[in-house]
Amino acid sequence: MDRFVKIKEVAAPLLQSNIDTDAIIPGNQLMRVSHSGFGGGLFANWRYRTETNGERAENPDFILNQAPYKQAKILLAGPNFACGSSRETAVWALRDWGFVCIIAPSFGDIFYANCFKNRVLPIMLDFAAVKAIAGQVEDSNGEGRVTVDLEHCLVTAPDGRQFAFSINDYFRNVLLQGLDPVSAVLQYETAISEFQEADRMRRPWVYPDAETAQKIEESVP
């Protein structure tokens, strides 16, 4: 995976509270067994409208359909962004559309965890700070760039004002080093075996005995 270090990009404000992952990627946009190609479905119910002839067309009132926000790589969001469904497609849709960083006062916990698996950086800043940055972006009609520096944990608004953010160092490293989340756990195989061996003594009922294992086996298709 690529590493995430520092970016200076267009930021799009979407400051409503509790934007859920159903809104980020509606159910009818996620029905493909795939890990990419979901950008077209991002915010589909807001981004498109149905014309009188039944065709889907861009809704010009939606911010991501407007220049220069069409080029945005940073999303400025309200509290509890991406709450709700665990669908990882919400991250894939944002990433496939072009976003690499979301700045919000808080996030749905599952979405927040999913971001780090997909090279998307979620940053928590208090709402006043997010609104201050959004205000400057809007004053410049979206032209003012926002800088995000993961190495130094700093967000710089278009006018140069800086906001420090804190982030879990474990997950920060995952992004800085571009670690693959699945391969990253394989190095713990010995620890996992040791844990299970001791745990089988401590909590034997968690692990199926021969009879139960047989029962389980029978349900394998």
């Binding site: 990882e88 965890a113 999913n114 698996k117 990253a184 756990v185 996992i192």
Partner: peptide
């Protein structure tokens, strides 16, 4: 714990997940 499908892969491969303690 509800997780995304990549964490599902992690759980399938390792029978573990990496979590920050709530």
């Amino acid at each position: 714990f509800g997780v995304g499908s990549t964490d599902g892969e992690v759980a399938l491969t390792s029978q573990c997940v990496i979590l920050t303690k709530p």
